[in-house]
């Protein structure tokens, strides 16, 4: 099995973000991590490899030089190949998906592609479906359960109201990983040593026949939302406080 996993480098979920020049985030002091859903994607790929030992797991990321760190982390978890599509420029999700789809095709054979359902920086929920559509293969998104049996993939995905869809696909296909799919492993010490020695394949957008960046979605402004004013603690005996709370909710802010 040839398995690909797309991973994106994003700021840590706890990071305090500030905006630089109105359009990008200030990168000073940011701790970069693998987008959490992509960790589920890596873990699931590694689980398939454990079951089908002749499998090969290749990580792909697209982004500036600093993104190499997520490839190293993913390799330390147990993947054996990594591709870095290096670009310093902002490109929109469609172009990202086109480049990644092309890179995967260029590698020859592919059976399973695991991707996060959403990257926690742009929260776009687009790339995995675009990659599948560009490759012309099936895709399921928001996947919480994955099974592979005799060339067929069975997944469950969460939909609204606590319901789940059961889906059947043939390979090759794309799986958009969600929370609940698995518990990502930590890299082992040996894994980290090994990862350091694995060469990372570098590609440019030109290598993927993207000659000109033609973004259709252009960032105009990045800004902090208006903060709520500090709230009010209702003091006093709790019996009275609860009465007062209900009165305020009903008569003043009218949400009851």
């Amino acid at each position: 099995m040839n398995i690909f996993v797309c991973i994106k480098q994003v700021p840590d979920t706890e990071a305090t973000l500030s905006v630089k020049d109105g359009k990008t985030i200030n990168e000073n002091n940011i701790k970069w991590i693998i987008s959490p859903y992509d960790e589920y994607a890596i873990e699931e790929a590694l689980k398939v490899k454990e079951k089908i030992p002749e499998s090969k797991v290749t990580l792909i990321t697209l982004g500036p030089k600093r993104c190499e760190s997520v490839l190293r982390s993913g390799l330390a978890m147990g993947a054996e190949n990594a591709i870095h599509i290096e670009t310093e420029e902002y490109i929109d999700n469609k172009t990202i998906a086109r480049a990644i789809a092309y890179a995967i095709k260029q590698e020859g054979n592919y059976n399973l592609i695991f991707i996060g359902k959403q990257a926690i920086d742009d929260d776009a929920f687009l790339t995995h479906i675009y990659i599948a559509e560009y490759l012309g293969i099936p895709v399921a998104t928001n996947v919480t359960l994955f099974k592979y049996e005799s060339e067929k993939v069975f997944v469950e995905r969460e939909i609204d109201g606590g319901e789940k869809e059961k889906i059947e696909m043939t390979t090759p296909c794309v799986i958009g990983a969600a929370k609940g799919l698995n518990t990502p492993r930590y890299p082992s010490l040996m894994g980290m040593m090994k990862a350091k020695k694995i060469p990372i394949k570098k590609l440019s957008l030109q290598d993927l026949e993207i000659e000109e960046i033609d973004n259709k979605i252009i960032i105009e402004k990045l800004f902090a939302p208006a903060e709520k004013p500090q709230g009010k603690i209702i003091e006093g005996e709790i019996e009275n406080a609860v009465k007062e709370l209900v009165r305020v909710l009903k008569d003043e802010v009218k949400v009851l």
Binding site: L17, D121, K216, I217, I218, E220, L222
Partner: peptide, 20 residues
């Protein structure tokens, strides 16, 4: 043709222009 949406889990908002 401009759109605003939350990014970084709502820590920031992004205003995009769409040219399509």
């Amino acid at each position: 043709n401009s759109i605003t949406k939350p990014v970084f889990a709502g820590r920031l908002l992004a205003k995009y222009r769409v040219e399509n």
